[in-house]
Simulated assay, not measured.
Amino acid sequence: MIGTSPRAKLLDAAIDHIARHGGADRSLRALAADLGTSHRMLIYHFGSKEGLLTAVAREVEARQRAALADLDPADFWRRLTDDDLRANEKLFFQLYGQALGGAPGTAEFLDGVIDDWLGPIEARLAQLGVPAADRPAHARLGLAVTRGLLLDLVTTGDREAVDAAMEKFLAMYEKP
């Protein structure tokens, strides 16, 4: 739970609901009914359906970044590819595409979508012994590989193939 304010409670409920049922294709009124509130309350707290979905995706990303510090890379990958996160990952990529295309209400989604990850990834790379001068490039590469494989997974559902690809990628960071 992220807090006890009415907005935080709605956001927690939306995260849980979307993880179980999806939601990007639902109207704001339908999402409000699913969450046991009114569309006016969602507009008050999030501005629009896109604002709500952006808040959901950003909070899920923040929770994943927090988990990165506590898990080894293989466990972190297993967490990201857990079936319980599939709807949230699909939402992430839908919003990413909409924001890149300039869809109204989605521009905020792009704020920090890359940069917010680089510091935590570089910190993890430091723990793995990657030299400081190499960390920025490795952080971008790791983020790109991870997001690419997650997109592959939500597109194809081929868990075995994406796991094998990530295993090959992570092997580059194992000490001989």
Rank of each mutant, 00 (worst) to 15 (best):
K168A: 09
R63I: 07
Q98M: 15
M41L: 00
D82W: 09
K168Q: 15
F93K: 10
R140Q: 11
L31W: 07
A69V: 02
L100G: 14
R147A: 08
D158A: 14
R135M: 11
D116C: 13
L71Q: 08
L53V: 02
L118G: 00
L11K: 05
D163A: 07
G101E: 10
L11I: 09
Q98N: 08
K175P: 15
L143D: 06
F169Q: 12
V162A: 01
E167A: 03
G51R: 12
V162D: 00
M172Q: 14
I114T: 11
N88E: 09
R135H: 03
R7D: 10
A99E: 01
L95M: 03
V145L: 08
D75E: 08
D84S: 12
R29M: 06
L151A: 08
H21P: 01
V56A: 02
A132G: 14
G102R: 15
K9S: 14
K175Y: 11
D84N: 13
A32F: 03
F169N: 02
L10T: 05
E122Q: 11
I2P: 13
E174C: 02
A144D: 15
K49T: 01
R159Q: 08
D70P: 07
S38T: 05
A139P: 06
G22Y: 02
F46D: 00
D16Q: 08
G105F: 07
A8Y: 06
A19S: 13
G97D: 09
L80K: 10
D82V: 07
L110W: 01
R29G: 07
D34F: 00
P176S: 15
W117V: 04
E89S: 06
R63D: 10
A30H: 10
P73Y: 04
R7A: 13
R40I: 14
F109M: 13
D116E: 12
A55Q: 12
G148P: 12
Y96F: 11
L110G: 02
A164M: 09
A137I: 09
G23K: 07
G148V: 13
F76G: 04
R79A: 15
A14N: 15
D75L: 15
A66W: 10
L170H: 03
T156H: 14
Q94M: 11
D158E: 12
M41Y: 01
D134G: 12
E50C: 02
D83P: 06
G105D: 07
H138Q: 04
D115G: 02
P6M: 13
L31H: 05
K90F: 13
D152N: 15
A144C: 13
R26L: 05
A66S: 10
D72Y: 08
G47L: 03
A14G: 11
M172F: 12
A165I: 05
R86H: 04
L85H: 13
A161F: 07
D116M: 08
F169D: 03
N88W: 02
A164D: 07
L91H: 00
D115E: 14
